[in-house]
Design a protein around this nucleic acid. Structure first.
Lengths: 226, 226
DNA sequence: AAGTGGTCTAGACCACGTC
DNA sequence: ACGTGGTCTAGACCACTTT
């Protein structure tokens, strides 16, 4: 029995309620004996199920079926171009603004920078010429002075940063917003529409490199399966 | 060197651009020799980094540094009670409605059921008496007739379902909505507020067991780190 | 055909947490 | 103290994919 087969068997036993939520299941050595494989194989299988949230494991205490499974959802942050072209639509991008500007207080806080001017870019991505998502990006030009000289009409800011700047982490925040007059015009939608907002920060060496806000067109959805 | 130390070393080399995005890194056997550990240990480390999206691995072709890392975000779907009490607020729940009702077309489609009446529940969760999130739930009482007799004032629908009903998967959709008059009243917010919406379906044996829509109060955020 | 990652094994020792 | 999962090893064979 390979580790995937072991996983399937364990999933089946949980699904059939042979092992009920909260119940202790046999320890690795016993399962290995019963299923006719090495303990390492069982370990691999059970570790995967624990990472997926289906099992809870503790040394000495053993392995239990989780009481509240399926509480994790992994969303893939889209590459906008791929997402649009993947549906057979024509991708477009307009850079609306590119200026050095003092960041507003909330951006100062998010980026942990002062009030000295940094690079601000606004762009609109379109699918078949219809507004798809608008992007407001701040680049920490104290940390990345080279960004001042980049030509963001020839290459998108995202691609330029990925290629030129090392980074080692980031974070995401999802929220919702009602379209104000400016957003309604940029996205060509009714003022007051509910819009999904994704804020992303990217880090390197303890500094925030860039902070981006994506505001999606009305009706946009993010989806995840488990 | 343990597998975590190997991971740290590889992360460091990527971060320092010793290995650049898109570049091939040494194969497992060579890394094992260089770092003084077994190949299985290197494999464990690199597999983890590949799952995290930092590396891309293919047999024979080798292992490359990903061109677009940090494109996955794992969100933990909150247990509302825990989320509220975890911030030191008082949790409350009011069941607003509990009726057998023919599901509207979009729910019929989402749940893959017909137009025969099924159980509908509406609830409002509060934090320190302030509306926090409102829940609209449909339960497939064709599949789970026992739900008809459950007392959802003594136990929340969620807890009852987790305890009584086996399930083996689900999916999530995140979107945004502008508060209409009804939602504005339920959530005690201004009409037109942008609201984050989480739709969740839960499956067992190929059937949709329950479909829930959570509409969060204005300002609610979901957060994820990588 | 050959090289790479993917997996499995048997055994060992360790780390942690419960008892 | 002891039982459990966590990890590591050395070696082996397999599966896939590119050349």
């Amino acid at each position: 029995m390979g580790w995937q087969a072991v996983q399937d068997e364990v999933r089946a036993r949980i699904s059939r309620r042979v092992w009920k939520p909260g119940a202790l299941i046999p320890h690795e050595a016993e399962l290995a004996r019963e299923l006719g494989c090495a303990r390492a194989t069982v370990n691999r299988a059970l570790r995967g199920l624990a990472e997926a949230g289906l099992l809870e494991r503790r040394r000495k205490a053993g392995t239990r079926v989780a009481l509240t499974p399926f509480r994790r959802a992994e969303f893939t942050i889209p590459l906008i171009r791929d997402e649009i072209e993947g549906r057979g639509q024509r991708f477009g991008c307009q850079v609306l603004s590119r200026v050095l500007r003092a960041p507003p207080p909330e951006v100062q806080a998010r980026m942990e920078v002062g009030d000295a001017p940094i690079l601000y870019l606004a762009a609109l991505y379109t699918a078949d010429n219809a507004p798809y998502v608008c992007e407001d990006r701040w680049i920490n030009t104290h940390a990345i002075p080279a960004a001042l000289e980049a030509d963001f009409t020839a290459i998108s800011p995202n691609e330029w940063l990925v290629r030129e700047v090392p980074f080692d982490g980031g974070d995401f925040t999802l929220s919702a917003l009602a379209a104000d007059a400016g957003l309604a015009e940029r996205l060509d939608c009714a003022a007051g529409s509910g819009l999904l907002v994704l804020d992303r920060r990217t880090w390197h060496a303890g500094q925030v490199i860039t902070s981006v806000r994506l505001v999606f067109h009305p009706g946009y959805r993010m989806h995840s399966q488990t």
